[in-house]
């Protein structure tokens, strides 16, 4: 029988271990037909600002911004849902604009300013949007929540910048904050728990307070 100790390895360690195995295997197969200099160019040094702090990383070019944040900088607040741009759980701000961190490479963000949920606010000093999500029960399991909050903060800025949406009636009139506008503009953030109506309430409250 296996000792109970062997089972105390966390799911996280397992993921890290299996990822390492994959890396070793692919490097090994590459060495058959590539020189070591070519292999070296398959990683790039990147320097960017994350939540106000200058960070430098040497990354395999394949590393998405999402994996750089989670696996290299250990900012695990940003979540991986689908890894294909379909759910919005990975939403972060790049130079103030909301993006899907899973569909962009870290190396493409050299010199940029990245903000994750950890950078918006912390326990004890929550961002108003974080507080509003808590107050309005804008979540159940919480998995989509960091993405929802980052997305909604940037979304309100988009309205302020007068960027129209699919439901905007008059393209030449100033953009408005209405429940229909919020729903349309937040459609890139899926909530499996269906907390949508409370999410809209939380966002509406913050939008109203700002106006």
């Amino acid at each position: 029988m296996q000792s109970p100790g062997a089972l105390e390895i966390s799911r996280r360690d397992l993921l890290v271990a299996s990822a390492a195995t994959v890396t070793v295997a692919s490097t090994a197969s590459l060495s058959h037909f590539q020189t070591s200099t070519a292999a070296a160019s398959q990683s790039t040094k990147i320097s960017f600002t994350v939540n106000g702090e200058r960070r430098e990383l040497q990354l395999d070019n394949r590393t998405t911004l999402l994996d750089a944040l989670r696996e290299h900088l250990h900012l695990t607040g940003t979540k991986k849902g689908c890894d294909h741009g379909q759910c919005g759980a990975c939403t972060v701000l790049a130079d103030g604009r909301r993006v899907n961190a899973c569909l962009t490479l870290a190396v493409m963000h050299e010199g940029e300013d990245i903000t994750t949920i950890e950078g918006l606010g912390q326990p004890g000093s929550l961002h108003p949007m974080q507080a509003a999500f808590v107050e309005h029960d804008g979540f159940q399991c919480g998995y989509c929540t960091p993405g929802q909050i980052c997305s909604s903060v940037a979304m309100l800025e988009e309205i302020k910048a007068n960027i129209p949406s699919h439901v905007t009636g008059d393209l030449l009139a100033p953009a408005e904050v209405t429940p229909a506008e919020i729903r349309e503009r937040m459609s890139g953030n899926i909530c499996r728990c269906g907390a949508y109506s409370n999410i809209v309430e939380a966002i509406t409250e913050i939008a109203g307070r700002k106006a």
Binding site: V99, N100, T168, L172, S187
Partner: peptide, 22 residues
Amino acid sequence: RRDYAVLARALLAGASGQLRNR
């Protein structure tokens, strides 16, 4: 928005806010 509204509308009907930003 003013002179090529059909294009603005088509763009806004595609993907999501995050995806359109990239």
